[in-house]
Simulated scan of single mutants.
Amino acid sequence: MSFYGKFSEKDLIESYTNQIDYQGKPDKEIVEEILKRGTLEDFQAKIKAKNLFLAEQNRMIREIHSHYMNKLSKQDCLSLISSDLLPDKTIQFLVETKYNQIHQNVENLKVDSKTLINTVIGTVIASIISSIVIFVSLYNFIFLMVFNFFLLIPVYIINYWMIRLITGKTRENPAVFIGSFIATVLNCIYFFVLYQTIS
């Protein structure tokens, strides 16, 4: 059995396409496997159909994005989009899925007063909690003092997840990103003050 003998049709198409893209021509072995399953013309026709399907899907996604940004409802969006290639069920699924994804991304990036207030609250709470976690860890495991600078990495991660939990937004949101950084700076200040107090 050849190397490509166990490949599914999808894997075979992907390998063939990659070889054309990067080598300019397919390997002899992959062509032999394709010919065992049918003709090269039929195989290439399947690739063309797949590319047309993907191009149509991408066109529709751009349309959905445009309609969303023009503040059209999901139903309006669905009524305006049509396709000669895709069945109605696929169009409906695509509109539902992509409309929701775009909405989530836009909402995630939004910096409004609620986000700012929650970020400030989250920054203070996160810096205090992460500092307590690190202080307790250092107290119980003195050997960690050697890695004190590298402890900023887990501190930053704790801060980020706390702020994310409070704001409901990810680090793609500028306020959350800045809040996580400020919380980590506050950790450094707490460490410095504690060190001065102990000294």
Rank of each mutant, 00 (worst) to 15 (best):
V111Q: 07
V133K: 07
P154H: 04
V185A: 09
S82I: 01
F141Y: 14
K89V: 13
L152V: 03
S199W: 00
I189V: 11
T184Q: 10
E96Q: 14
I178F: 12
K36Y: 09
W161Y: 15
V193M: 02
I134L: 10
S113Y: 09
Q92S: 03
V120Q: 05
E29R: 05
I166N: 07
Q44Y: 08
I132R: 08
S127A: 04
P87C: 00
D84K: 06
M1V: 04
K25V: 01
E172V: 05
T17A: 06
Q196D: 03
I198S: 02
I81F: 10
Q104E: 14
L94N: 03
F147M: 02
D76G: 08
F3D: 11
C77V: 15
S2N: 07
V124P: 04
K74L: 01
V111G: 06
I129R: 05
L78E: 02
I129Y: 06
V193N: 00
N118F: 12
Q104G: 02
I129A: 11
K89Y: 13
F149L: 03
E56D: 13
I61H: 06
R37P: 14
N159P: 10
K89R: 08
D21E: 13
I91K: 05
Q23D: 13
V111D: 01
I134A: 05
E32V: 10
D112K: 09
K10C: 07
Q23W: 09
N58P: 01
F7K: 08
V136W: 08
Y4E: 10
E63G: 02
N51D: 05
F181D: 07
N118V: 01
T167P: 14
M162P: 13
Q44T: 13
E9W: 08
S15V: 13
